[in-house]
Design a protein around this nucleic acid. Structure first.
Lengths: 196, 196
DNA sequence: GCTGGAAGTTACAGACCGGTAACACCCTAG
DNA sequence: CTAGGGTGTTACCGGTCTGTAACTTCCAGC
């Protein structure tokens, strides 16, 4: 499971999966289409039959990431049915786990750092997906009966985002080790405020 | 003041300044040495007489950035001599101002996102500079008489880091607008705890 | 004015990039 | 068995990248 994702499945799926993995590990500009197709056990022509350009492949990878991340929320609901507060704590634990298992930051944030052209197709997708992500967290906080749900959600989300870049810059032993403590403290503090 | 920093000064300084600006705006892998030297009003040979490689130029740019950021702290001390709490609030205001004036994130974080090779010379420099940055903020919190200075400093720093990536992904009208509110709230909250 | 070093110029090497053309192959649906 | 679409192969295009060689020009200090 290094870079060679060569299970037998349809070429398009292999390319998408391999590209996701390699973009995540080596950055978007750090990976060429040749390297992707080779690792996916196929060739460049096949890639360009399924994706009209590398940029479209990038966009598709980001969407696939978001889809996978969306599935995460469903496990929260499955593990704590109806208990929105427990689901929020599950989110915190899940976020902390990601900090320890993955030294690279958020793919969307990394992509935004790399793709600086203001009209790059990936930028609107990133914005769109990040806003959807925020809506979900806000909804969770609100349903958990927390006053100022937006503020808590935004704070937690900035904290997590910051923790991910911190892991990327100073490593997993830096300030990100305190993430759970910070997040739990915030939740307690916000629970104290009236839910008017 | 777009990309053409061609004031008359020594070529090395012009190259360094121009590279800093262009790396910041377009990303490291998004800028070639030819483009840098042209914008700096010089040529490639001169660049390679002063920097042994692009990687070394990158490292030097990061160090120059940190130097400039270090000067910021001195203005805090100059504007609020001895009043460490006021300096901490000045840091919050300054951070918020950066969120609104600069749509790109932290150069070190962006560089870490782009330069994925684990032994890239820039990575150790980034870690070193980020740790120094943290020490400064921790010191400020401690001198401001705040209990759990490390935890507050880390929280503020993760919040700020997260706000910068948020600006880069969803824009300045997203969650980052709440940064000052979050930060001030945290400071108040930590001031309440005993300084034992 | 002369000299020596810094800076500019041109050309090039070698590698890699994204993307395409033309053609051979294989495998499955009919 | 056959037809046809998906796939593989090879070669190529034009461009860009970092880095270097050889040479000229400029300019300050003596």
């Amino acid at each position: 499971m290094t870079d060679g994702v060569v299970e037998r499945s349809r070429p398009r799926d292999r390319i998408l999966e391999t590209a996701r993995d390699m973009f995540h590990k080596h950055g978007i500009k750090g990976v060429g289409v040749d390297a992707i197709t080779e690792a996916a056990g196929t060739n460049k022509m096949t890639l360009y039959r399924h994706f009209e350009s590398k940029d479209e492949l990038i966009v598709e990878c980001l969407r696939a990431n978001a889809l996978k991340a969306g599935a995460m929320w469903e496990t929260f609901e499955a593990e704590h049915p109806g208990d929105k507060l427990a689901q929020l704590h599950a989110w915190v634990r899940k976020a902390a786990a990601m900090l320890n298992t993955d030294g690279r930051g958020c793919d969307m944030a990394n992509a935004a750092a790399e793709l600086t052209e203001p009209d790059h197709p990936a930028r609107r997708v990133i914005k769109e997906l990040k806003e959807a992500q925020r809506e979900r967290l806000v909804g969770l906080c609100r349903d958990a009966g927390i006053g100022q749900a937006e503020l808590l959600a935004d704070t937690l989300s900035l904290l997590f985002e910051g923790a991910r870049v911190s892991v990327q810059t100073v490593g997993a032993e830096g300030p990100s080790t305190q993430f759970v403590r910070m997040a739990e403290g915030l939740i307690v503090s916000f629970r104290g405020t009236a839910a008017n």
